[in-house]
Amino acid sequence: MKEFAGFGNLLFPMPDRHRDPLTLDQMERLLPYHSHIHTKTTIEVLETLKEEVGQGKKIFYPIYTEEEMRQDPEKRNTGLFFFRGKVDEPFAIVNAGGGFQYVGAIHESFPHCMEIARRGYNAFALIYRPNAYEACEDLARAIAFIFDHHEQLQVSTMCYSLWGGSAGARMAAWLGSYGTKEFGEKPYPKAGTIVMQYTGLSEWTRNDPPTFVIVGDHDYIADWRIMKRRIDHLKQAGIDTSFRVVSGLEHGFGIGMGTKAQGWIDEAIDFWQEQMKKEK
């Protein structure tokens, strides 16, 4: 689509093995670590973005300078897709998973951002380099970019949240635990809330932000019990937490459309709102 010129290549993961044209109903071939992929939701995301562009709104923001991208061409494949909520409301950054092999944003961050924006909050989907440390560098830069441009973007930096599924959940947790300075940026305020889906991360710190977790008990990629133990440690350290395990649900369910998890994003936003109240 001409509306997405300059960044349309970042909407879908395109590994080298898929050189033949694919239709939207074949998208699961691009997302081997994901499940419950809904073509209708994909179309809704694309139509939403197209409508924003048609209204003259900027929907994509590079996070690196031209000089940085010349020095490291892989940084051209990064950036933030902006789903606008209400002016001067807090923001969320959502990080899709993909095993640090691809970025499944079309299933695991764009739909989340769309739902968050419908609740009035501003949401950014990060497209990052699929390497664990570099991905965290990109997330740290994304936080820096939003803080440094918050007036232009018309977002509040109060009690921002970091979201992620699978590999993206690790990114959100690591930035929550260690902060932006650990990943090459100056120290920015830490997130007010972390929202995590299905990952096998066990490490934690006493500085972790309040954390919301949802997992399925049929997840054969990331055992839900690892997440439960992590949340128990946070809770014992006096950190606000919320943990939900969904029976019969596997890895990579995204917004959970058509599953027992459908509507979980509202629960996560409610948890985030409780943290906002405490910051005021």
Rank of each mutant, 00 (worst) to 15 (best):
Y33L: 15
V195T: 09
D88L: 15
W224I: 07
A96P: 05
K228N: 09
M196K: 05
I269G: 03
E89D: 02
A261Y: 01
L139K: 11
E28R: 12
E115P: 01
H233S: 11
A172S: 11
G248T: 14
H218D: 12
I221C: 06
G97M: 06
S166Y: 05
A172V: 03
D232H: 10
I239G: 09
I265S: 06
P62V: 08
V103D: 05
H251C: 09
D88P: 07
R244V: 12
Q275M: 15
H233N: 14
M14T: 12
I143E: 05
V45E: 09
A96W: 01
R84C: 09
H34I: 03
L139R: 10
P73Y: 12
R206P: 03
I269V: 15
I116A: 00
A142V: 00
E51C: 10
E182M: 08
E137W: 04
E115G: 00
E250Q: 13
S156M: 10
H107N: 15
F212T: 03
I221H: 04
Q197E: 13
M14H: 10
T78R: 13
P15E: 06
G120W: 00
K228P: 00
I127A: 01
I37E: 00
E137Y: 07
E3Q: 15
N207P: 02
L22Y: 02
I116P: 01
I127R: 05
G97C: 08
D240K: 13
D266F: 08
D219L: 12
M69D: 02
L175T: 06
E51S: 15
E267I: 07
A167M: 10
E137L: 10
L234N: 09
F183W: 14
I127Q: 00
E203S: 15
Y64L: 03
Y220K: 07
M158L: 14
G6C: 13
S247V: 09
V53Q: 09
Q275Y: 10
F124E: 04
D217Y: 12
E68M: 02
M1D: 09
E66F: 10
R230E: 02
V45D: 08
K50F: 01
I93V: 12
W163D: 01
A172G: 00
E89W: 00
K260R: 14
D20E: 15
W163N: 05
Y160Q: 11
A117R: 06
N207K: 14
N77F: 15
S247C: 11
G98I: 08
F82M: 12
S161E: 07
Q197S: 08
L22V: 02
E3A: 13
K2I: 05
D72R: 13
G238S: 09
I37W: 03
M114N: 12
K86Q: 11
K280F: 11
A140P: 00
S242T: 05
A135R: 13
Y61G: 01
P73C: 09
L49R: 08
A169K: 04
H218L: 11
A92K: 02
D25T: 09
F243M: 09
A140G: 04
G164T: 11
F145G: 02
I59K: 06
R244I: 11
R230F: 07
A261G: 07
I265L: 14
L30N: 01
E51D: 15
